[in-house]
Structure formats: C-alpha cells, structure tokens
Design a protein around this nucleic acid. Structure first.
Length: 631
RNA sequence: GCCGAUGUAGCUCAAUUGGUAGAGCAACGCAUUCGUAAUGCGUAGGUUACCGGUUCAAUUCUGGUCAUCGGCUCCA
C-alpha cells in the first residue's frame, strides 16, 4: 500500500520491504512512524527474498513429485539456498532437472504467496497429521526457547510451510533459478543426528545475474589449485600418503621463495628462527594440554614392546603444533623483563590426522608447515605486538596483491582451560589493541581457541572469495602449564603471555589460495620459470646459450628452448606454462645483438639491450614487484 | 567419520543391451631449420584403482577395500 502511494509502478515490482533497516515481508503492517524502504528486484536485498521463496517452491515441487518426502528447513545462504529433506529415496543428479521443471510450472502458475498466523496448537496438530515431524520439532523448540504463541505460515496454492519470511508476493516473481547439487547434511548440523538429503540451488532477480553467477563458477573452476597444480607440475598426491602433498621441482620453488620472503620479514620485525624436533615424548603434549584436547587429530607411535592403551598412551607423538616445543626453549633459560618480547619463529613440519572427508587439495592436508611464531611478552606488551604483527601482515598481504582483508575477534568458547578472570584479561587486551589501532573488526562470540581469544584475518581474493589466512591467538595458559617465568623489576618471577601468530597460516594452504588468487600467473619473483629463451633456427644457438648463461648468472630462473621445433610451437608451450618472459632470438637479433621480448599478454617489445633486460628482471625480482617491468 | 558420486594410457576423454579396449595431446624415432599460441609421417604405451563373487564370458552386473570429488560434521 505504501508503495502504491508512491506510484502504481513501484507497487507492481515491490518484492519486500525494510522497516527501520529490518527486512520484512511486504504484507507486514507498519504500526508506527518508521523509515521505510521498498525492496524491488533492483535492490541488493532482493536476492535474499527471491531465494527464500525459491526454496519454498523447490520444496513444493519435490513433494509434488515425491509425496513421501518430508521437509525440514530451507534457508538462504550466501550464494543461494537449500532445503534439507528427509526422504526414503536417494536423490540422483537427474532429479534436479525434473524438480526444476516442476518449479517452473509453479512459478508460471503465478500463485499468490499468502502469509497467515497460526496458533502453536493448530500448527503442531496440522504438521503432526502430515507426518512432518521435523516441523513439529522446530515449533516445539520455538515455544521452549522464545515462548511464542503463534507462528507464521506461508501459502502458495495448496502448499504451505512454517516460515518467518519474507517472501515475494507471487510465484511469478521467480524468473531465474537453478538447482546446483545434492549433498548429505545432518539434522541440525549435529553428526549424532540422522543424515538428511540437502538440495542446493540458487536464484537471482534476473536471468542475466544468474548467468553471470554461473560464469563466475566456471571461472573458479578454471582457477582450482588442484587443476592448476597438475597442469603446471607444482605438486602431486599418492594414495600411499593420502592428503600429503609432494612438491615437484616447480612447486618447491614457490614454497622456498615464500620461506625466503618470510625469513626476510622476520629479520625486519625482530623474530628469531628456531628448529625443533619432529617427534616428542607424549609427556610434552600431556603437559601442554593438547593430549587431552586434540588427541584425535594426532599421530602416535608406541614402542614395539609396549601395548597401546588408548586412554593413556606412552611413547611418542609426531608434533601437530610448534608451541609446546617453543615453551621448552623458553623454559630452558632464565629471562629478564628486558629480553621481552621474545619472538620465536619455526617452519617446523607438522602432522595432523585430518579425517578422510575433510581433506582438500593443498588447502587441508595432513602434513604441512606454518609461518608460525610464538611471542613471549608481558600483558602490557600485547598491544604493541599486535601493532607490529598487523604492520608485518599488511606489508606481506600487499606483496601478494591481497589488498582487502577483515579482522575477526573470537572470544571464549565453551570447551576451554583457564579461569574466567584470565579470559577477561586476555579478551580485554585484544579488543583494546584493536581499538587503539582503529582497526574495524567483527566479534565471533565463542569461537576462540581453548587456550585463549584470537584474531583471525580473512582476505578477499581476485574473484571476491574470502579466505582465512592470518591469525593471532592470545594464550594465558601456556606459561602455567610449562611453568614459564621472567624476572621483572621487582626481582620476582612473572608469567609471560604467549601470542601464537601466523600470517600466511599453513604454507600449503596459502599456496592453494595464492594459486587461485592469481590463476597460476605468479609474479616474477615466484614464477618457477622466469624466462624462456627461444631460438628460431640453429643459427642463433650460440647467442641463445650465451644469454642463458648470463641470465642464470644473474640469478634468473631461465630455460633454454633450443629444440628443433617451430617458433609458434615453442611460444605456445611457454604460454601454457605461464612463463612471464619469452626471449625470441632470430637472425635479426643475432646481427644487432638485441632482444625481442614477448610477454605473457602477447605484447612484443623489440630492440631491447641485453643488459637492460637482465637488469630490469633482476630489479623486478628483487623488489617482488606485483607487476611486470614492461607492462 | 557421515551422505552421495567417481576411478579406463603420463594428461583430457570414448567404448551400443556383458562378447577380453580406442582417440587427441604428451613420450620415442625419422624427415623438416622454420619470425610470435600446435610441421608432417611413424612407433610404442593398458592385469580398465585393488581384492573377491555371479557368468561360457565382466571395463560393463555385484560385495568389499583404497583413493579422489561434491556436501555435512570437524579444524589449536
């Protein structure tokens, strides 16, 4: 009605509304003076409403096709929606097309979507009669939790569902939707509950938006680090070491360049690198508390003459984290307050037993190393350390072209060690530091590590996806566990705070993100092959070899392609390998002793003096330039 | 771990209702010495992931194992 007052055209396209910033159904009655927005298919909020309605229409379509299917919940998610279904029959991919067709019929029938308020009793009775036991459970929980007396029910034709809304006014508002996939999901996300079948779909205000989204999915697929890793010979896997990457020569170059870079940054920011053992007596992890809290993810070895007792293992364990080892280093000597903060860095290899279903390319593996460091400091120093950390992080992310990141602050979880007073102190120090730095952040209540609150840094990649990379975790418990102390001005022993921090996170995972971020086109300093020298005929063989030698001497990773192949063929191969620079040598170059450079982009640069070229590339590598010298 | 799917040459993929596997690229050989994304011809390459079952006969049907993929749960 309000939209109609503004204009009949607006009333026609109105999908939903916003009252004082809250998304509401178009049928909501405005009860007091409020700021009203009319949501149309042009509004950014439109997709949310459309997807929610699409979920309902999908559920109706499914129940039309298979009446025995019971429905549970069907929310909107970031890029679409899903509905969780309790079905005796397993859905197969071919069903998706069938369901879509049925959905189209419902959309085309242009039914009005109506909202009704039912008493709790009526709702429970109705859904019980229908055998929709999950709906009944939801309502009963709502009553228990919020003490509600009424629930809202949305109708389209004869079909209806318990739902908070909002929804589009008519089914014909759904013009662009697609069902994406079938998956399993636990009822209420709890693995002890029965497994339901989930159908994912997406919907947009227009066909154009949907197509664009599908195109972006294709683009993500092309960038998949597992695919690129194979194509570019970066890494491989083998069934005899599941979820454990083998870095091939070119992948190892990437890995080592990352290490080199981080080591340089450590130098600048006052870190000291240490090297610690791989295998420890289980006692270490009993002492740190990991044995009690993290045992399921750890690898244990038991001496052959001892029988393993699952409840109290003896013997050794592969390290799954560096911190306990660093605690031993810190505890090995006396420390003055003047020596703090003490920053110990470690690229030690870690082994974590990840469950079979969770591993994913390089992003989630069973053996990896981190750009891990532990800072032993006083409570007063926390703030300065966070500043130091954020400065370092900002510089490093910029180098990789991650210019956009967000900070999340996670507070005490349910399962934790340490007194609440200790937690108050830790959380207070972190949020004070963030405020001082004027860093905007989001609070994730209850998401902290068991030993302390933490900051997580999420970066956005080139195609807009978010990844968690950096982390800084405050730990007031480790000093107690290992009885760590420093001597303060009062000549008494005090417990240091320990900050666990990483900027790249796991190097393996970071490589996965980086590969997808740059689609396999690395900046020169990371490129496994930085330049390839291509001769046109045997004539230029001498110059080619000479140039190759001087480039290698300048520290540039250069390949010499003097195979008896056509120029076009060699260029194509270099192009597919994403080599940044191709140096083409023909008779012209031979007589002038200059170079013809071809960039990945296809751009050709003629008459380049050899010295200038080598200098330009060396400089580009040295500065870790994100852009090429000739672009 | 749970739900579902997949596994054929180094890679990307074929193989009608069960009748013991084929192509392109890569590799190798020969010819070709070529100007900015594929020169031509030829050769070789397979216990169809692995272990069982059904059958005269299994890549195909079936049971199990392993791995991978899409999700869920988990992620110090």
């Amino acid at each position: 009605e309000i939209a109609a007052l503004i204009g009949p055209g607006l009333a026609k396209v109105a999908l939903a509304g916003k009252i004082d910033g809250k998304l509401v159904d178009i049928r909501t009655v405005v009860e007091k003076d409020s700021a009203i927005h009319i949501i149309t298919d042009k509004s950014p909020e439109a997709n949310e409403v459309i997807r929610h309605s699409a979920a309902h229409i999908m559920a109706e379509a499914i129940q039309k096709l298979w009446p025995e299917v019971k429905i549970t919940i069907g929310p909107v998610i970031e890029n679409g929606f899903f509905y969780d279904l309790d079905s005796p029959r397993n859905f197969v991919p071919e069903d998706l097309a069938k369901i879509e067709l049925e959905m189209k019929k419902i959309a085309d029938s242009d039914q009005e979507i109506k909202r009704e308020m039912w008493s709790v009793d009526k709702a429970i009775q109705t859904f019980t009669k229908m055998g929709e036991r999950f709906k009944v459970e939801i309502i009963q929980d709502l009553v228990k939790k919020d003490g509600i007396k009424e629930v809202s029910i949305f109708h389209q034709g004869n079909w209806f569902d318990l739902c908070r809304g909002p929804h589009v006014p008519r089914t014909s508002f759904l013009k662009a939707f697609k069902l994406m996939s079938i998956a399993g999901a636990y009822w209420r996300g709890d693995e002890k509950n029965p497994m339901l079948q989930r159908i994912y779909g997406t919907a947009f205000a227009s066909k154009k938006d949907l197509d664009q989204y599908l195109l972006q999915l294709e683009e993500s697929k092309k960038r998949d680090h597992r695919k690129l890793g194979k194509e570019l010979n970066l890494f491989m896997f083998h069934p005899w070491a599941p979820a454990s990457p083998f870095f091939l020569p070119h992948g190892a170059i990437l890995y080592n360049e990352l290490l080199k870079y981080i080591r340089e940054e450590y130098q600048v920011h006052g870190y000291e690198e240490v090297i610690t053992p791989q295998v420890f007596d289980v006692e270490l992890f009993k002492c740190s508390g990991h044995y009690d809290n993290y045992r399921d993810n750890m690898y244990f070895t038991t001496p052959a003459d001892e029988k393993a007792d699952a409840s109290d293992l003896k013997g050794s364990s592969l390290k799954a984290m560096n911190c306990p080892g660093h605690a031993l280093i810190f505890g090995n000597t006396k420390h003055s307050y003047r020596d703090l903060p003490k920053r110990l860095a470690d690229f030690g290899r870690l082994h974590r037993y990840e469950r079979a279903g969770v591993v994913h390319g390089l992003a989630r593996v069973r053996t990896f190393s981190q750009d891990d460091a532990h800072i032993f400091c006083t409570v007063e120093q926390i703030q300065g350390e966070i500043e130091n950390f954020m400065t370092m992080l900002n510089g490093i992310y910029k180098t990789f072209g991650f210019n956009d990141y967000k900070v999340y602050f996670s507070t005490r979880p349910e399962k934790r060690i340490g007194d609440d007073s200790v937690w108050d102190k830790a959380e207070g120090a972190l949020s004070a530091a963030l405020d001082k730095l004027k860093l905007p952040f989001t609070v994730n209540a209850g998401d902290g590590a068991f030993y302390g609150p933490k900051l997580d840094i999420m970066v956005t990649d080139a195609i807009g996806r978010a990844w968690q990379l950096g982390t800084l975790q405050c730990d007031f418990n480790m000093a107690n566990r290992f009885n760590l102390e420093y001597t303060a001005e009062d000549n008494k022993g005090h417990k240091p705070v320990v900050l666990h921090r990483a900027i790249l996170g796991s190097l393996e995972r970071f490589l996965a993100v980086l590969i997808e971020h740059c689609a396999g086109v690395f900046p020169l300093w990371l490129s496994p092959v930085q330049a390839v020298i291509i001769n046109i005929s045997e004539n230029q063989m001498g110059l080619a070899k000479e140039l190759h030698e001087s480039m290698m001497a300048a520290g540039l990773r250069t390949e010499l392609d003097i195979r008896n192949e056509k120029l076009g063929f060699k260029i194509r191969e270099a192009q597919l390998k994403k080599v940044p620079y191709m140096v083409i040598l023909g008779d012209k170059e031979l007589s002038s002793r200059t170079l013809s450079i071809r960039l990945k982009s296809g751009k050709e640069i003629k008459d380049v003096a050899i010295n200038d070229f080598v200098k330009a590339l060396s400089e580009e590598v040295k500065t870790r330039a994100p852009k090429g010298s000739y672009e």
